[in-house]
Simulated assay, not measured.
Amino acid sequence: MSLYYSPLVYTIPEQEDGWLLKTVLQRRLQVSRKLLSRLKLTEQGIMLNGERVYISVKVSAGDRLEVRMEQEESDDILPEELPFNILYEDEHLLIVNKDSGIIVHPTHGHYTGTLANGVVHYWKSKAERFRFRPIHRLDQETSGVLAIAKNPYVHQHVSEQMIAGTVDKKYMAIVHGCPAEVEGAVDGPIDRDPDEPHRRIVTPDGYAARTLYRVVTTWGNGSASVVNLKLESGRTHQIRVHMTSIGCPLIGDRMYKTLPSDRIDADTEAMRNERDGWIDRQALHAYELSFDHPILKQRMTFQAPLPPDLAALEKRLDAEAQPREERI
């Protein structure tokens, strides 16, 4: 099998002269044990000055270390020509702006028509071989920035950043109502709803979840608002559940629609039902993603512009829910 030759090249500095190669790989380059075991079994997976070596050898200052990974393909994903918007691409990463209504990865009953099908076709059309490795997920109806790794080393390192909380994921939502405070946090453990397992609820016995928010726009004296959000955890449906829990469900969200009717008056409920019909999905967009590029060693930020349906929703609220107040 041909190899993917260029994900990681490293020149041994003076201060690492005499180190074991294994130490350089694990401590300096932070290659995981799982990946290291895989590289050891790969022909030309670990090369020092152009020669295959054991990881027990000692390195010298100026040595050129190459980590070479086998090219892979997602043989279980059918290539399908589907349009998608590329925000950034290099030999290590693909960053896309996912449209709403698109599932990220094939699931039971959805083997085609997913982002993965389109990406695999795109790579094949360029005679490139990569395995589809999304670093995170977005709900089917959520639009915005999505990162895909092209090799296991990059996937490992960005995933570790997510676990460490150093990846910034920022969203904007258009919601019914307006939070009581212009800026704040929602701390609410989340778990499955025992009555409807496909839904999530805030419950004391759930998994810790925290969402930061800031109100940027309001309409009609607080009848609707634009809220920017940042996740400090990554629970399923977290933003939708948390915003509903503070009385501000996302416009268009049929699953987490409103609070019980005894919490809002009939006129407000009717107005919310009408506005839910103005858009075909929950009004949620992942507008920015930031993380440290594992190879380039640079902080990178990717932004996805507001999609047309959310822009149209804002315009309709401007027309029918005056006055509008900018809170930035």
Rank of each mutant, 00 (worst) to 15 (best):
E81C: 09
F84C: 07
F84E: 02
F84Y: 05
I86D: 01
L87Q: 11
L87D: 06
Y88I: 10
E91I: 00
H92P: 11
L93H: 08
L93D: 01
V96L: 01
D99S: 15
D99R: 15
S100Q: 14
G101P: 14
I102P: 14
I103C: 10
H105D: 00
G109W: 08
H110L: 05
T112C: 05
T114N: 06
A116L: 06
V119W: 08
K124Q: 11
S125H: 10
A127E: 12
E128Q: 15
R131W: 10
P134L: 00
P134Y: 04
H136V: 06
R137Y: 02
L138S: 07
T142N: 13
S143D: 07
G144C: 06
G144F: 03
V145A: 09
V145G: 13
L146E: 02
L146S: 03
A149N: 07
P152E: 03
H155I: 00
Q156R: 12
H157W: 02
S159D: 09
S159T: 14
Q161H: 09
M162T: 11
T166S: 15
T166I: 10
D168P: 08
K170F: 03
K170I: 01
Y171W: 08
M172L: 12
I174F: 03
I174Q: 09
V175L: 10
H176Q: 08
G177H: 07
C178T: 13
C178L: 02
P179N: 06
E183S: 10
E183Q: 11
A185I: 05
D187T: 13
G188V: 07
R192T: 09
P194A: 04
D195C: 11
E196G: 00
P197T: 05
P197K: 13
R199W: 03
V202P: 09
T203R: 15
T203I: 10
P204G: 00
D205T: 12
Y207I: 09
A208F: 06
A209F: 04
R210L: 12
R210D: 00
T211I: 05
R214E: 10
V216T: 15
